[in-house]
Nucleic acid binder design. Structure first.
Length: 617
DNA sequence: GCAAGGTC
């Protein structure tokens, strides 16, 4: 018997189906000379400090540098503390039995660094010696699966990928465990002050933004607004320049030739520009973009959205949710028309689904090269029974985005009219000629809500129009907005760099902080540590969070660049350019220095933290 | 009591 092992049950079942294996057993499926089993993500983790003899949190232990790392079964939190996850233990027993019985293993965990690690940790923990080959596919259509099985790779081809994965894991343990204990101990050991490669830069982003807003000094400036009349159709224009002083703006304001000052046609049209603009549909959703949208539309937290999506996935209503790709391959694209047809009885989308059925589908979201472990989130075509309100809301965001993504471009006409009257004014207007994808939700664009003129009258250069109204406007510069879950997720994708362009931002996603599957958990960790609070929809730092930030803000552990630097080195390990030993010794050096620094610097916040919890006996 | 990574 050959054993196929997948990363998760859904993939194991899918592979079995393609092979025609149908005998369902407890934890695996059998048939045609194969057995198909699965993990549930990482079943094993690097063992905690006490398994190396570091009991309690003691300064004398630091830095903890285990010679050889051990693996232990994934734990879950219960009221009696952390215990082995019984489901994980059971599945490991099943895998052990299948390892013993098989002649060969086919590794079918996700095609990536963590997928490799999931299998290798199991293989190592169960002390298996059987030969294994690697299935490496980026799409799970029948054809891609069959093709992958015809082209199995030698297992050892991925040895360096495993090395880089293990290094990632060990490095996070060394830096995270040591830094956390060092800071907690030196700050007086009152509570857990956790630090880590991902959570600490995230905290730093929230704190830096908060302080920037708190220290922001608004500046007053003046603008002049006018209203013009073209044959009874009124429109607004605003001065191109801002004025710094009230005196200056008042002097100019007085000279603007409005009707009330005796000028019947004081507004001279000096330029008219009307340009058609095409707006392509948005890309399909990946987890992060969906979490952002659900936060904006419904106020769901990243964690809630992930939970709702996971339920929908388990009910087979949507495809795999923890994806970082907003694209699908051509093979999946071939399955899209029936998916759209399945929405023709949807109460909200029926009309658009029918219209889309008649059109050539837009292929902006179709690009096999941009599909990594998983493709963008789609519906499956399976009819949703009655869903809870929240589940329905998330399902509709997936379905609606699908209709948008394959829809026509939105065609607009953008008009700019330049008016001269003592100074230069500008009127902007946008008219939608053909709504295209925008007809799915009929939303107003975020940045167009305060646009002064939806439609502008037809005017010609050289015309003079009456200015029927003028106003001196006093305005203030505004600080950036506080982070909320949506804007934080967006920032994590690009390490805090603000990139508006959707595709450019997407290109940077490999250098982001955390992964789609872990970002919601990172936010929850910061909340659990009481480093941050939810204040309405905003995420704001607490005094504790700010105190920790003050200690670490200049250190590498608080900078997103640390992840970038590690990633570069890990890729060198994978490609064979750097030895594992070289990287590990760098990490150990860094662990020693950050631990030492924190043991000293942490004392600074000892007094600032909340009084220790009262101990009752 | 602690990281970040994966998933149910």
């Amino acid at each position: 018997m050959k054993l196929v092992i997948a990363e998760k049950p859904s993939v194991g079942r899918e592979l079995a189906k393609v092979f025609g294996a149908t005998t369902r057993k407890d934890g695996y499926i059998e048939g045609k000379g194969y057995s198909f089993t699965w993990a549930f993500g990482h079943l094993l983790q690097l063992a905690p400090p006490q398994e190396y003899g570091f009991y309690g949190w003691r300064k004398e232990h630091l830095p903890m540098l285990p010679q050889k790392f051990k693996l232990s079964i994934r734990k879950i939190k219960t009221k009696d503390g952390m215990v082995e996850d019984p489901g994980v233990r059971k599945q490991l027993d099943i895998i052990q039995k299948l390892f013993d019985e098989c002649t060969e293993i086919i590794v079918a965990t996700d095609a990536g660094r963590e997928g490799e690690l999931i299998f290798r940790y199991i293989y190592s923990y169960l002390k298996c010696k059987k030969p294994f080959k690697r299935l490496w596919i980026s799409s799970q259509t029948d054809e891609a699966i069959k093709d992958g099985f015809r082209n199995l790779k030698p297992g050892e081809d991925y040895d360096t990928l495993f090395s880089s994965a293990h290094c990632r894991s060990v490095s996070d343990w060394l830096v995270g465990m040591n830094a956390t204990q060092a800071l907690s101990i030196s700050a007086g050991n009152r509570s857990v002050l956790s630090l880590g490669r991902v959570q600490t830069p995230t905290l730093a982003m929230i704190c830096a933004r908060y302080l920037e807003i708190k220290n922001f000094i608004p500046k007053i400036y003046y603008q002049i607004g006018i209203q013009l009349d073209k044959d009874g159709q009124l429109f607004k224009a605003i001065s191109v320049d801002n004025f710094e002083t009230k005196e200056e703006s008042e002097a100019i304001f007085a000279k603007v030739e409005d009707v009330a000052s005796g000028f019947s046609n004081g507004g001279n049209i000096t330029a008219v520009e009307a340009k058609p603009r095409k707006e392509p549909p948005p890309l399909l959703h990946d987890l992060s973009s969906l979490q952002q949208e659900a936060n904006k539309r419904n106020g769901f937290t990243a964690d809630q959205t992930l939970g709702l999506l996971q339920n929908l996935y388990e009910s087979k209503l949507v495809t795999y949710p923890r994806t970082g790709s907003r694209y699908i391959g051509d093979d999946v694209f071939a399955t899209v028309p029936p998916l759209i047809a399945s929405l023709t009885d949807h109460p909200q989308f029926a009309k658009q689904a029918m219209a889309l059925g008649e059109m050539t589908l837009n292929k902006r979201s179709v690009n096999a090269k941009k599909v990594t472990d998983h493709h963008a989130i789609l519906t499956t075509g399976i009819k949703a029974g009655s869903l809870s309100k929240d589940h329905q809301a998330v399902y509709d965001m997936v379905a609606g985005r699908m209709l948008e993504a394959f829809h026509q471009e939105c065609l607009k006409e953008v008009t700019k009219i330049t008016i001269q009257s003592e100074i230069t004014f500008m009127a902007n207007g946008t008219v939608i000629r053909s709504a295209g994808w925008r007809s799915v939700f009929n939303d107003v664009e975020d940045d167009k809500k305060d646009e002064d003129n939806p439609a502008l009258p037809k005017v010609k250069k050289g015309e003079a129009l009456p200015i029927i109204n003028k106003a001196l406007l006093e305005k203030q510069t505004k600080p950036k907005a506080m982070y909320n879950e949506a804007s934080l997720l967006k920032s994590l994708e690009t390490c805090g760099k603000e990139i508006e362009d959707e595709e450019l931002r997407y290109a940077m996603k490999d250098s982001g902080l955390g992964t789609p599957a872990t970002r919601a958990a990172i936010i929850e960790t910061l909340l659990t540590r009481e480093y941050i609070l939810r204040e309405k929809r905003n995420l704001v730092p607490t005094a504790k969070g700010l105190a920790v930030y003050e200690i670490v803000k200049e250190k590498r552990i608080a900078q997103a660049e640390l992840t970038g630097a590690w990633e570069k080195r890990l890729e060198e390990i994978r490609s064979g350019g750097t030895s594992v030993q070289e990287f590990k010794s760098e990490i150990i050096d860094y662990t020693r220095s950050i631990t030492q620094e924190l043991l000293t610097d942490g004392a600074a916040i000892s007094g600032q933290l909340a009084t220790p919890a009262t101990v009752t006996t």
